[in-house]
Each structure stands twice: as structure tokens, then as C-alpha cells.
Design a protein around this nucleic acid. Structure first.
Lengths: 143, 143
DNA sequence: GCATCCTTCATGACATATCATGCATCTATT
DNA sequence: AATAGATGCATGATATGTCATGAAGGATGC
């Protein structure tokens, strides 16, 4: 039975959480995807990252980050300015509109997490996180 | 910090597991994706399901299942025959080639799971699964 | 028998995931 | 300074996720 396989439960839980979280953002009338929000948030925190570095933080590859940045820029939530000292890179900056969206999404995200974790104690979530980290390490080839 | 957020760890663990599992299938020279394998496996077990029912079992929506079935059919791993009593549906059947691929992937999947779960006790995985199920339920609107 | 509604499936549109590749630029070496 | 290798970014190809819609067949009520 598939339902007895741990990785099926993992996939199921994260997919349902994503649907739930996205639905709540949509319902609030905010036009942004979870993934775009995540990238925008990282850029706000640290604005001198390369696409690869951003990808490492949000666990996406560079190609995905590039496309998300292009969409965020097209939507005016992000601006890219040329960097004088390195012609390959650009300086990313969250616009006021981007900031407004981040502010609007924040309470929704907090609420999403709280609802999703109802009935789980602090010890539960700590253990869960530790086990997930172990699985991650087990699946990561030694570099 | 993103790394302290449970759902980030969840996303990270499942993505890394999928990359790890797909890489091992690729390395064995088997041309199938994890998702295609999953759908093919469900059809082998129960061959009279609608696309929606298959989607429920593998946690995908009907549109994704339709595309995966089309690809599996194009690759000759699946055949679809018209059903006499219901003109909307087709009878799906795994071909010999499809069966051969399922057989070849099976030991790899078992090995993937074993490696990914190294260091986790049976009690750990049972608890993990229970907590994941709770999260799923928390994110599922009452129907 | 017929209209209406439901189900099954296909597909278009858009976003993301992954891999590969191409191009420009930077850095290190000589 | 010239070149080789590394880095940053864009993009094409293919697969999947999600939503919406359309076409066709089936079921029900009248």
C-alpha cells in the first residue's frame, strides 16, 4: 500500500500544505505564488546574492530562480540595476510594491503555519525537523 | 532564518529525496521518471481506475495524470483499449515492456528508501508518518 | 424521447523543476 | 596582455502542478 510508505506521506503532506497556503494567499486577493514570495523574501533579507546563492537558500536551482526573478521584475516587485564592478551581475532590490506584498503575505503565512501545526507539540516539531534533516543528509552525496 | 521553519525542512527533505531517487534510476540506465513510475505502478495493481481515481492515489490532479498516461502510452509502457460499456473511458494495461521497467526499478526504490531512512528507528518513522498525517489533515478543508 | 446534469478525458495557459548549453565576464596563470 | 578556467545569467527542451474549459458520453427526471 502506498499509504504505508513514508515518502508518500511526506509528498502528500507538503503538497497539501502548499495548496492550503496558496489558496489562503489567493483568497486574500494577493497575486503572488509561494515560490515567488520565498525568493522575494530572501532578496529583501540579503540583496547581494547571486542566483545560485538564492537557489541554495530556497532549495531551487539557478534556472528556476532566474525565471522567478524575471517574473518578479516584470510585475514590478523587484528591480535590477547593473553593478559597476562586475558586469555579469545585477543588484536586486525589492520595490515598494514588493515590500507591500511581503507585508500583506506575512500574517497569512504565520497563520498558515499555525493551522497546519495544530495538535503538534514543540517537542513533536523539533523531532520532526531533526528527522527530516537526517533524511536530507542521507540523500545528499558527500561532496 | 528559513532553516528553522518546519515547512522549509519538509520541502528540502522531499526534494532531496526525489533528486536522489531519480539520480539512482537514471544511473541504472532506466528511462522513466519517478512520477511516471508511480502512476504505472498504480495501474498495474488496479487497472480499472479513472484518471481522477489514479490521481487520488498518487496525490496528483487529473490533468497531470492524463499527461503522464499519454507519455507512458507513447513510450509503449501502457496500452489503452476502448471499453464497450462506457465510451468515455479506456481500459489501461501495462505492457511487457512496462512490466520489465517496473521490475527493474523495484530494487532501486527499495534501496533508495533504505538509504534515505538510515539512522531512523521504526518508532521514528512511525511517529514521523503520524505527524505528517496530522499536518495533512490540518491543511485539508472539511468536505 | 428529451433536456439537464454529472462524469471522463483532453488540452490550453501559466508557473515551476531539471538538465544542458550558450554567452558574457571575471580571475588566475603565465 | 593573452589565454584558460571559473562564474553569472539566460534560455531551450521536457516533465509536472494547477486551474479552467471544452467535448463527448452517460444517468436521471420529466
Amino acid at each position: 500500500m502506498l499509504s504505508n510508505i513514508l515518502f508518500y506521506s511526506l509528498d502528500k503532506a507538503i503538497k497539501q500544505y502548499r495548496r492550503f497556503a496558496q489558496a489562503n494567499i489567493d483568497r486574500a486577493g494577493i497575486a503572488i505564488t509561494i515560490d515567488q514570495w520565498l525568493v522575494l523574501r530572501v532578496i529583501l533579507e540579503t540583496d547581494d546574492l547571486t542566483q545560485t546563492e538564492i537557489g541554495d537558500r530556497v532549495f531551487k536551482d539557478q534556472a528556476s530562480v532566474a525565471r522567478i526573478i524575471r517574473l518578479l521584475t516584470q510585475r514590478g516587485l523587484l528591480v535590477a540595476e547593473a553593478l559597476p564592478h562586475d558586469g555579469r551581475r545585477t543588484q536586486l532590490r525589492v520595490t515598494e510594491e514588493g515590500q507591500r506584498i511581503l507585508d500583506a503575505v506575512h500574517p497569512i503565512v504565520l497563520s498558515n503555519r499555525a493551522v497546519a501545526l495544530q495538535g503538534l507539540s514543540a517537542a513533536d516539531t523539533a523531532l520532526l525537523q531533526q528527522l527530516l534533516e537526517q533524511i536530507y543528509l542521507n540523500c545528499t552525496p558527500p561532496s
